[in-house]
Structures are given as C-alpha cells and as structure tokens.
Design a protein around this nucleic acid. Sequence first.
DNA 1: TTGTAAGCGTTATCAA
DNA 2: TTGATAACGCTTACAA
Lengths: 345, 345
Amino acid sequence: MITLKEIAEEAGVSLMTVSNVVNGKISKVSREKREQIYKIIKKYEYIPNYSARSLAANSSRIIGCVLLGNQSESNLLMDEYNARFAGTVMDYVHQQGYYFMLRSVSGHREATEFLRSWNVDGAVFIGMSYTYIKRLLKENRIPLIFTDSYTEDQEIPNIGIDDRKGGRLAAECLLRHGHRSLGFICYATKDEISLMHQRLLGYRETLSAAGLILKEAHIHRLNTDPARGIAAIADAHISSITRNDVPTAYFTTADRLAFSLIRAFYERGIMTPQDISVIGFDNLTSASCFIPGLTTIAQDIEQKAKMAMDALFRRIGDPAAPVESAMLDVTLVERESTAMLVMDR
Amino acid sequence: MITLKEIAEEAGVSLMTVSNVVNGKISKVSREKREQIYKIIKKYEYIPNYSARSLAANSSRIIGCVLLGNQSESNLLMDEYNARFAGTVMDYVHQQGYYFMLRSVSGHREATEFLRSWNVDGAVFIGMSYTYIKRLLKENRIPLIFTDSYTEDQEIPNIGIDDRKGGRLAAECLLRHGHRSLGFICYATKDEISLMHQRLLGYRETLSAAGLILKEAHIHRLNTDPARGIAAIADAHISSITRNDVPTAYFTTADRLAFSLIRAFYERGIMTPQDISVIGFDNLTSASCFIPGLTTIAQDIEQKAKMAMDALFRRIGDPAAPVESAMLDVTLVERESTAMLVMDR
DNA sequence: TTGTAAGCGTTATCAA
DNA sequence: TTGATAACGCTTACAA
C-alpha cells in the first residue's frame, strides 16, 4: 500500500508534486516530472487513501442515500420502488466519481449521525416526514434533497410527483368505464400530509365532481401485514356482494397491492376485469407482464432519481445555488385490468 | 462540529481520556470523569469523525457490497434478486454497527480500487467470475466472500445454492407431468462454468436418465434484450408448432423470464398451463400472486445473504478463521404454471 | 514550477 | 488511571 510520500521519495520530488499529479492538477507540474511520477504510480498501483483525503480536505465524496424504515419492516430494498430509486442514484453518484452509502434509519437523529460521522457531501432521502425534514435541515449544513415529501414549506428541496393528479386520473378512468361504486386501498401512514392523502384527495374530489361519494367503508388503510389485509378486503367484498353495496372497481396506491388484490379475487372466483376493475400506481416492471396487464398510474422513478441528483449536485458544486423543487407528471397507462362495467347482477 | 480535543479542554482532561470514554473502554477511566465527559458529549452532540478513525486505526468499519455489471445494463438493483440480497446485507451490516457501501463494477481492478481507497474491512460479491475472484483474492488482504460463483478451487469462500439440483427438480417436475419435449431458457453468460451451466447440467442429465435428449434448438441463451428474445422464442414456437417439433414445457432460469414467457404466449393465444407448462427459478415475491401462480425452483435469498455475512464477520473478527463455503438447498414450489400434458394435437 | 509547514480528528504506544 | 507524543495519508496555504 504505497503512499504519496513514498512515491515522492522514489521520484526524488516533493510530496505535493505527486499530490498534484494524482489530482490532475497538471498545470502545476512540469511534463517530465509528471511522466516520471505516472510511471511510479502505475508501477506500484498507487491507490489514494480516501479517509485521509476526506479528513484533510473536509470533503468525503460520499453521497448518502437514506431510507426511512418502520423498524419492523425488514429489507426496504424488497420494494421495487426503493430499489430502482436507490439503484439509479448509485449509478449516478458513481458516474460523478463519488461514492455511495446506503442507509436505512428509523429517525432523524440516526440520519444526522450517519451523515456527520462520514462527513457526507450530500444526501438524498426517500419518504421522510415533515417533522424529520425540518430537523434534518437544521442539523446538517450540507446539501440535502428530499423526495415524495409533502410540506407547506417552500424552502424545502423536494422532488415529487403529482400524486393528486394520479388520484384524479384513476377516478376518471374508472368513471369513464361506467363504474359508480369505487373503493380505495392504500398503506397506512402516520403523517397527516402524505402522498397517500394526496392520491386519496384527487380520487375523492373527482368522484365528488361526478356527484358520487367515496364511502368511508370503501377506504382501506393497510397496516402491518398487507397480504392479510388484502385477503380480508376480498373476503369482505364477497360477503357484502349480496347487499349490493360493494365497489365494482378499486384504486390501490401501489402496483403490488393491485397484484395481490387481483390474485385474491381470482382465488375467490372474481375475475379481473370481467367482474371487477383494478388500477394500481407506479407502473412497476411486472405491470406489463401480469395477466391481466395492469392498468396503473405511471411515474418515472428513474427520472425522479436523476432530477433529485441533478439538483443535489448543483448545490454541491455551488453551495449558493438556490433550493430546487420539482413535481413530475404522472400518466395513466391503460392495460387490461380495467373494463366497462357490465350490469348483470 | 465538536472534536475530542475540544471536549477534553472543556472537561479539563486529556484527549485520550475522552477517546476511551467514547469507545466504551470504561475500565480505563474513573467513574467521575466518565460521567462528566458523558455530559459534555451529550451537551454538544458529539459525533465521531470516522474518516479520522479509519485513518488512525486502519479500520474503516465499512463493508462493501460489490455487484458485477455488464456495463450496458443499468440499474442492477432493478433485479429483485440483487435488491433483496443487497438489502439483507445492508440491514445485517448496519446491525453490526458497520457501514454499507454499495458499488457496481465492471471488473476486478475497479473493485480493488474501491476496496482499497476506502480501506474497507470486508466485502461481499455477487456474481463474480472465477478469473476475477482469483485476482481479487490476490490483490486484497481483507476478508472477502463470494456468492453464486463456481470454481474448482476449494480455497475460495463461496456461498451458493445447489443449482444443479434446481435443474434436476425442474426436469423431474416436467417429466412427472408427462412432458417429453422440453425447452430451456437462460441469460447468456461469458463464463465457462457458471450457475446457468449447472442448472442446464442438472436439467439435461435428468432428461438423459429418462431416455430423452434436450435438443440444442430448444436451448435459448438470451443476450442484450431479454424481452425481445422472449418474444422471438414465442414467435418461433408458434411457427414450429405444425412441425410437431416444439417443446410442451419450458424451464427458465429466472422467474422474470418465466413471467415474460407466459405473457408472450398469452398474447399469442397459448395458455399456461393448458397449452404449455413453465417453470421459473428464484421464487420471487410476485411468483405467488402471478396468474397462473408460478411453479418455480425456490431459493432463500435472505438466508444466503445472512450466511455470507456470518462467514464474513467471523473472518473479520478472527483473521485466522478458516475459509468457509456453503451450498444451500433449493426446493420445488409447485403452483399453477405446470400441468399434465394433454395430447390433443 | 516546486517545496515547506501546518493541520485535519482520531488511535496506539508508552511513560508517568 | 491519566496524559504526552507520534503517527495515519492527505490537502491547504504559502513561500521560494
């Protein structure tokens, strides 16, 4: 493990000359010394010590990617959304010559501790709540960027999507297909203002505008075990079917919920889309190969990650750069899981 | 950003006393000084600088997770296998009080550079080829653990699964269902010895034992664009159907290929399992909610990751510990995508 | 263009 | 039990 000092000795130059060569500051070194040093570097396969650099330069070239985990949940990367987002960030970071640390935390203290102990140069967050964000911004003086967070505060750098429009598009699609009794399924969240609420808001307001109301009994918030929750919904659906007070279509705020729901119905003899229509959210890779193809609200996860990183690196490059936020569009992708309502009961 | 030195000054003790308190070496510090120092640490929310520690102690507490990427491919975490493996490793590492760096590389040089520049304490690799592994072990003196690598060399620490048995189980299942003309679909690999070959080997030898041969024309190795490759296979299948020389069942070495294949057949009017049987590999989360439920060779990704980390940390804890390898079992999970062959043509 | 010196925040070592 | 001192490998700032 050769060091700058040793290279300097072998080359008969000062350590700084070598340092400049290593860091590509060629304007500061004469051609001949440069070439000579290159040779020695090559010969010994010199690799810089980044801890030392981080310490001396007060910049680590590490980008942190922080996921908020509800402790109970294990393996946040099991979620395709998180995995694709993190994977895109990793590639981006790496391409910029930075390093990528991934971390799941259960709160803002843990996140701050992580960022500070490694002297991280910037960080991107997935799914932080407003209170955490405020604290994180107060506790850290480095560029931070948040995603999918809802706040009233304009000063918070956030890259999100138009969740409300997503809810609207879903409702419009179902209304267009003649459905009048609709259901809504989402993961439970603790936050008052969250993307789930926005989606619900858009969904509900579109129904209202059509003179329909979304019944409280048709709104399901899934807690600990989504699979069990979905099964319960399907069971309840069946047992209510005779009462004629049952949705003919469901909007779920995640494709995975939609897959489970369609499957649960299938196992109970209810076919999608003949008997029930289902819309998902995200447009995951499997949405198109699922049978039936899943109608869903599509968002561009990779683009979101890239935009977040663009904004982050702009601020890393220029700390005086303004705080940036963006709201990306969502679109309806109609496949086969939604169909015209047939009145045959 | 308070430092040990500043805390020492405020407490009127030496820097080393504070350091010992921070590192829990309480046997070296008197109770009263300890308590006093704790207070100051709390008051200023002291957070250790890990770059400095890494430099001084020559141990970074970083664990690297290295993915081999075929440069062209982007976002390796899109693959559920990689994501789940990496996610499990992340949780494990974190639980041990270590930090997690994730990195995709295109070769051993890049990997070594990464490991050395951060002075990584240990690393786990996904999908390295034999030649890379040999070089990595030569170039790095830290504990490394490989997964799913095939080598003749016993000295290589590898955690894998019984891929050959996987192939055998798939073949047996299809034979049991009366199929006599079988197909095989996998991703192309450059390596001579790889898990794909093992699966093919187990598959083929089981057919041979039953007096059947796996025709070369029925073996498909997918290159750049799997989706397109799958479509081509389905098209070819259809156009060969009249010649009566077409598989009645396919074994694909990845669930995602199986999903695509089933979908491609579906779009062409060929139904699974009525017209064709399909077996996948991995037992991804969506295998059970797909319609039809996917018959597949199941492996325990999380367990594999945990075993790899157990072995890694044993060697980090004791560098003299022996090199460990393991081969985990696989099982057949029969769902709905395989059925008895019906002779109606 | 090159070199010198100080310092980044920590740990290891040894002496008190 | 405590403390002084020398590293660790590098960058910044400045002098030559």
